[in-house]
């Protein structure tokens, strides 16, 4: 009687909460009227989306790692810094290809730069998980302390290897400057950031929603014990999520370094504050929330930076406060059992 049959139609789907998306759209529309000039608005919106996507690339791993294993890695910024510094070295090695006028040859410099950042950050992430994080599973206080300590040591080691000075990280030749569409100026590199960011987001969504591994990760975030009871090793899964998260932070770091065109050792710590704000806004553990939160932070930072530069640097904190007053668990709260 109660046996499920095939003709019961599709499985019941969780309804997607659209209010945060509407807010995002609302911010974009309100900004249009506040700014008043269409071309400025387009430029700012593209800049905001590019920045938001870069932040998303860096933050997504951290929020998943937290959701899956309840581990907060205060040294996440380290992988960003490593990505950026590896980017500097690789870009220097491929400087002839990067300086060429041909777009294809430029890609030949950009690809190894990003790949190098991803691989090195991922490898160091694997090492970091094994040596620093594994001994302190489940102990929050120690996690915060130990990862902060790891960050201090790693920052100093970066000093030892690359020196204390600000290093230039030039963009490849054909990616400098901007397009003019009508009277709208669009920086070329921002488009690269948008393309890479959207691809990462699409790939992540595909993996999370269409593969078995993704299913396990999502289930693990909601109820780790149950997934383990089914015979899956969440811890092994977690190691891979940690490595991929670190690698993505490395990718984001290399892109962010090129975005700013230079790299200092503080790049990681600076981004950390922004990333924390993003994942708090999004709801700790939620990838979708992280995406919306990152776009919101990127857009608001750019709009406010244009409208009233004095407030700009604090706009993210204000945004976080407002969101938390409305939804104390973030935009997309993760239900944990």
């Amino acid at each position: 009687m109660t046996q499920p049959s095939d003709d019961q139609g599709p499985l019941p789907q969780a309804r997607i909460d659209t209010i945060p998306l509407l807010i995002l759209a609302g911010v974009v529309i309100v900004a249009f009227f506040l700014i008043g000039s269409a071309s400025t608005w387009v430029t700012l919106t593209i800049a905001g989306v590019a920045m938001g996507l870069l932040i998303f690339i860096m933050a997504s791993g951290l929020t998943l790692v937290f959701g899956l294993m309840d581990v907060m890695n205060f040294a996440h910024g380290l992988f960003i810094a490593i990505g950026a510094y590896v980017g500097v070295s690789t870009m220097k090695a491929f400087s002839s290809a990067a300086g060429s006028e041909s777009f294809l040859e430029n890609l030949g410099a950009l690809a190894p730069t990003l790949l190098g950042a991803v691989v090195v950050a991922g490898l160091i992430g694997a090492f970091f998980e094994r040596v620093i994080i594994r001994p302190v599973y489940g102990q929050h206080l120690k996690q915060i302390l130990i990862t902060t300590g790891g960050m201090i040591v790693a920052e100093q080691l970066i000093h030892v290897i690359w020196g204390p000075d600000l290093l230039p990280l030039p963009r490849p030749e054909t990616l400098r400057g901007s397009f003019l569409v009508g009277d709208v100026a669009i920086e070329k590199f921002r488009l690269v950031a948008v393309v890479v960011g959207l691809s990462v987001f699409a790939a992540m969504m595909l993996v999370l929603n269409r593969t078995k591994i993704g299913l396990l990760i999502r289930a693990g975030v909601e109820n780790k014990e149950m997934v383990e009871a089914m015979g899956y090793r969440v811890r092994r899964l977690f190691v891979w999520v940690f490595i991929v998260g670190s690698a993505l932070a490395g990718l984001g770091g290399a892109l962010w370094g090129m975005y700013q065109e230079n790299v200092t050792v503080h790049i990681g710590a600076q981004m950390m504050v922004l990333i924390f704000i993003v994942i708090i806004i999004g709801g700790l553990g939620s990838v979708g929330g992280c995406f919306v939160g990152a776009l919101l932070v990127g857009l608001v930072a750019n709009y406010v930076g244009y409208l009233s530069p004095k407030v700009a640097l604090g706009s993210n904190i204000l945004l976080m406060m407002i969101v938390l007053f409305w939804r104390p668990q973030g935009l997309y709260p993760v239900n944990r059992q």
């Binding site: 130990i146 300590g149 040591v153 080691l157 030892v160």
Partner: peptide, 8 residues
């Protein structure tokens, strides 16, 4: 660096 190592 060395104090950081000591910390860890």
């Amino acid at each position: 660096l060395w104090l950081g190592v000591l910390f860890v």
